[in-house]
Design a protein around this nucleic acid. Structure first.
Lengths: 135, 135
DNA sequence: TTTCACTTTAGAATTATTATAAACTAGATT
DNA sequence: AATCTAGTTTATAATAATTCTAAAGTGAAA
């Protein structure tokens, strides 16, 4: 993705193409493969690579702005709380983000027909299906 | 579940049945339905219900001890960091907890044959399949 | 009943994230 | 081009969830 495309992408998302946003956007989107990161890891990479210093809070702001604009997705469904479950059997969950409530789904109520094989020397430990709900 | 069972359960898991553990275990396991909670919410409920005061750190310790013993499962796979993904299309993930690495799975590589319908007045927003890896 | 490794406790520390408020800037208006 | 202004960036403080620490307490083995 060219710089000009990034400018377009930002403008079309009503994000002012500031120096920082352009720099972060170039870093994130000028690549061939998918890129997974946390704000913290992105920040470290930016510090290494970039000439100008970008505040951590700006990285948070920018990442969330990109997310709101649909340029990034967040691989996290439950906020930052850890839920525990007295049901230790293999099962799945509905998650209602309105009420921050988890609902069990019996393992038998979901059948997965096709599944990819694990990469390289890895094995599949378990498969969790998470169904997010809306009203 | 009776108190005596809880004592057995703890002993068999090599957890000393201390006053606090028994109290928390009774609260968690002497019920018919699955119970979902966070340490914080559990702590609040314990403060309300219990006679003796239990330190928050003890609730953390105890919950993790129960988890290690297999009496509780943790509905959370990625620690407490939020990952972002430059791939905004609908897709799934492998998660390698050894390396804390996410790997994309194309939406077409997973086919779900049977899925439960959403509860009460809710709709399904999206379905996330999370495949945990081991070595 | 003594002993000691395991526990509990209060509070400090850490980590991830969000809020704040002052300084800055892209782009519209003059 | 100079001015204006809402949106941005920044350093820092605040918050929230969780873990650490070190001292005091306690099951249960001997």
């Amino acid at each position: 993705m060219k710089k000009i495309d990034i400018l377009k992408k930002l403008r079309s998302s009503r994000l002012r193409p500031t120096k920082q946003r352009v720099e972060i956007a170039k870093f994130l989107f000028e690549r061939d493969k998918t890129f997974h990161f946390t704000v913290e890891s992105l920040n470290k990479l930016l510090i290494k690579k970039s000439t100008s210093r970008i505040a951590l809070a700006t990285v948070y702001n920018t990442v969330h702005a990109f997310k709101a604009a649909g340029h990034l997705s967040e691989v996290e469904v439950r906020g930052n709380k850890t839920y525990f479950d007295t049901n230790v059997s293999n099962h799945h969950h509905f998650y209602d983000s309105e009420t921050a409530e988890l609902i069990d789904i019996d393992a038998n109520d979901i059948i997965i027909q096709k599944i990819p094989k694990a990469p390289n020397g890895k094995k599949i430990k378990n498969v969790e299906v998470f169904i997010n709900l809306k009203n």
